[in-house]
Nucleic acid binder design. Structure first.
Lengths: 161, 161
DNA sequence: GGCTATGATTGTAGCATACAACTATTGACG
DNA sequence: CGTCAATAGTTGTATGCTACAATCATAGCC
């Protein structure tokens, strides 16, 4: 790393902090409007295009199975998801959106799209292209870095032990 | 909004989702390594340069005072922060880092800087400039949008009521 | 000097999360 | 076949973060 980057790191970090809060906050607002919690929303969106087992879902979302089990409890109680049996393997659950669940997902998507469209609409072309490029770059690079580091977040969930 | 943006919104959203997880996850990793929770870290970083009252801190972090009170409890128990009385107004707390707290903040900063430096180091100049620009743009724009919307997240915290 | 405003704490409650213990089912191997 | 290890989920327990409501202490105003 060269010097030039040094003085840029501080602002960058604090902006990322703002971004973190804004992104999370926005999604929370979107989903809460639709009456589901953020965790439930994550799960719903993953089920938009596929049926998934609990284990599979927990792998995708990087959460403990027990956590997902309870999250799904809520979704089932809300009538948004059904736990269908897999005839081939009765240990497995096939988590599937109900029609109501599908409607909910559609509304969440609409809400999010509306927001992000407005976000981008307020920029000039150059800025917009820059932002679109960067978000992809950042997401890739951060994921790449995390996966390449040996003692990273979820590789070693034991932490304190 | 024009058509061109439509087909760009989907990927953009999913990349933002990744980003959200990565940013939060990274900070969690950084701070956990240093033995404080994420919420505690947020508070510590705000206290890096100033003494703040609980109310002030809660405004900055956009959290309920009661929440912060307990968070600060933890920091005090950990010996990182002291609740000093304000001689001029005995209702007020002046939250202040202890030397240990300052050390902790330094370590967190180091850890974060190292990570973000590496993140940027892996890009070519053009990408890096683009990313730096965008993060600022996005953060500003998202904050602006949120504050301008009447029925947004924290403007109307009642939500369901 | 009493009333209101302000700052902080504590009680209570809900959600998200993880780990550990447990049950049910499957599959493999002798 | 029958046992036993592996796999999928659920439930018990614990921790952290959060908010709202009630309460206490102090300050400031008439």
């Amino acid at each position: 790393m060269n010097r030039t980057e040094k003085h840029v790191l501080g602002p960058f970090r604090s902006q990322l902090r703002v971004l973190e809060r804004e992104i999370a906050g926005q999604r929370e607002a979107d989903t809460r409007c639709c009456g589901v919690t953020l965790a439930q929303c994550h799960a719903l969106l993953e089920l938009e295009n596929t049926e998934l087992s609990l284990t599979h879902l927990s792998a995708v979302l990087d959460l403990d199975i027990s956590t997902l089990s309870r999250t799904v409890d809520g979704l089932v109680r809300a009538g948004l998801v059904v736990r269908a049996e897999d005839p081939a393997d009765r240990r497995l659950l096939r988590l599937r959106l109900t029609p109501a669940g599908r409607g909910k997902v559609d509304r969440i998507n609409e809400e999010c799209n509306r927001y992000y469209a407005e976000l981008l609409a307020g920029m000039n072309d150059r800025d917009r292209r820059c932002v679109l490029r960067s978000v992809g770059l950042l997401a890739d690079r951060m994921r790449g870095l995390r996966l390449s580091l040996p003692c990273s977040t979820k590789e070693n969930p034991h932490g304190k032990k």
